[in-house]
Design a protein around this nucleic acid. Structure first.
Lengths: 343, 343
DNA sequence: TTGAAAGCGCTAACAG
DNA sequence: CTGTTAGCGCTTTCAA
């Protein structure tokens, strides 16, 4: 806190602590890192001096010398979609006691942006990289592969990872939901989702959903896409649009809970019998759903757990021994709620 | 990508590029940073070699040598409250073209955790620190003050900052809302909010609200607090609880939009005449509100803008010349929506 | 248990 | 326009 000798604006170094305590730099370093054996008396002296001066070690120098960096790169497409902050929360919580720190990069779903962010992060030689999705440019994949740091690709297991993978199969999730809907007797099914062609997980869910329908000899009766804006409001608008265009739909599958919730509110206000006349389902299992007038059917996307497991993998690989990829596929469970007919 | 000579697992260095291109390390460095004048022919040679080898510079070494770190520490209390990811989004977007990268630390509203996170971040000698709130332990404040890096405290302007401050006055926001409510003729007013005593901004809003009521000779008729869980659901439960206990309330002021939205849904379902019989208001201006059956009165908390302005301050101070604190107070505006009687 | 020497990989500063 | 020389502030390694 207090600057002992002169309050010059030069940042304090180990040497300052060394001089103030009369102990060699090396020993000061050992004390500050709890490394090796140091006598209690010298330890005291050093800690006292460091505290008096308000010394904060320089990790840049430490990292260079030790070739060890306590940073973990986290690359996600967006922060405005609640899902990613939640994953990040899982990562952050799990990393909490490991001395590792997350560094966040946002790609806005753009492959070129992803390359830039990865390059930037890898140049810090982090202890690990956690990257959303399996779809990357060849350049990006090569950077990750050659980086020598453990890489965990998260959220999705439908495809090949560079190293470790933690996620769910969105394709299977889509199929499962289709099966549940068909089993409940619905036949005229519509899909509502984002227009974003680079959201591969949403795309895979839709594809899986269509496969599931096909198995039952069905196909989508109508679709509606949107981009941008308040998801809840968009859900309302899209629902109205699709039901106006195709009034005989008996089920609406939404690519996320937010638009699904908007749709649910709209249907209830407009006198639809849910789930008798019209069934609804979303995706993600956001806890907002608990407060709606009726519980929207959904599927938990396990996002905090995905973050936590990814962080564990990074934290558990001390020196990036090239142990090679774990693949952890979590299994999301359908939460039928109140918007699918019980059979 | 391809490892030219031998595919040893040693990370590539500038020297490797230098040797591969036949150009001195220094010139390679210049090319890779677009610094100084380099002839087109050597530039080509260098870039070619770097690309062939798949070289990624080591910023640790670069930062140590240049005393410049392109990291910005961002310290926030939580990631599960949508507000903070939004601020972070504003920061991240603004930093995007500056070459600066945000590093996120989460404090869980705990002062001790904040100290740890700050210490950890400052040890990276970042280009700036963006910290939520004005309330910090003396130790934390001292670390920030002595760090020599520009500090921006965000979200709140009610108090003294260490350096720069960007935010809104929550106290004033509370007073304003009180004034609007009183002006609309409501008299029996209840408050619903989080129990969290360390959420200083929520506390200041409440205090300001009470001051505003007091000016009109009123005081809170009842209060209800919660912690944890789905905010939407909690909003329902709390609303039911407070209205059961104090049925003659004619206004409910919620400390955030999420619980307010839950309350709104509950009131509508239970046949309350909103805003005739009962008025409602929240805080934050989340865009979820656009999709509700009725538009909840609220107040924009300017969070993306706060993030953006904070990032600008950091990005605009090249070498942390101790120019001293800017204070930017944004003025949130009441959005009366449909849940306050028009006068 | 402590200290001295030698870098970590890069860039500032200067010289050509 | 290009190269050389010294470090940046730590930690590793070895010696005392």
């Amino acid at each position: 806190m207090a600057r002992s000798p002169v309050d010059s604006r030069r940042p304090l170094t180990l040497r300052d602590v060394s001089e103030a305590s009369g102990v060699s730099e090396m020993t000061v370093s050992r004390v500050l890192r709890n490394r090796g054996d140091v006598s209690d008396s010298t330890r005291e002296k050093v800690l006292e001096a460091a505290r008096m001066l308000g010394y904060v070690p320089n990790k840049i120098a430490g990292a260079l010398a030790s070739q060890r960096v306590n940073l973990v790169g986290v690359v996600i497409p967006s922060l405005s979609n609640l899902v990613f902050p939640e994953v990040l929360g899982g990562i952050s919580a799990e990393l909490d006691d490991t001395g590792l720190q997350p560094v966040v990069g946002v790609t806005a779903y753009l492959p070129e942006k992803e390359e830039t962010v990865l390059y930037e992060m890898l140049s810090w030689r982090p202890s690990g990289m956690i990257v959303a999705g399996l779809e990357h440019s060849e350049t990006a994949r090569a950077m990750l592969r050659n980086s020598g740091v453990p890489v965990v690709e998260i959220m999705d297991t439908d495809g090949e990872g560079v190293d470790s993978v933690v996620g769910i199969s969105h394709r299977r999730a889509g199929r499962q939901m289709a099966a549940a809907i068909v089993a409940a007797g619905y036949r005229r099914i519509g899909f509502l989702g984002t227009k974003m062609p680079l959201d591969h997980r949403a795309r895979k869910r839709l594809e899986g959903f269509q496969e599931g329908l096909a198995e039952a000899g069905l196909q989508l009766a109508d679709t509606e896409f949107y981009s941008g804006g308040s998801a809840l409001k968009k859900g309302r608008e899209m629902t109205q649009a699709i039901l106006t265009r195709t009034p005989d739909l008996d089920f609406l599958y939404y690519s996320n809970d937010m638009i699904g919730a908007g749709g649910l509110l709209w249907c209830l206000e407009n006198g639809y019998d849910v789930p008798g006349q019209l069934g609804l389902a979303g995706f993600n299992g956001v806890d907002l759903l608990e407060g709606l007038p009726r519980r929207l059917a959904t599927m938990d996307s396990c996002r905090r757990e995905i973050g936590a497991k990814a962080a564990q993998i990074i934290a558990g690989r001390p020196h990036s021994g090239v142990i090679g990829g774990e693949v952890i596929e979590l299994t999301p469970v359908i939460q039928p709620g109140d918007t699918i007919r019980r059979v």
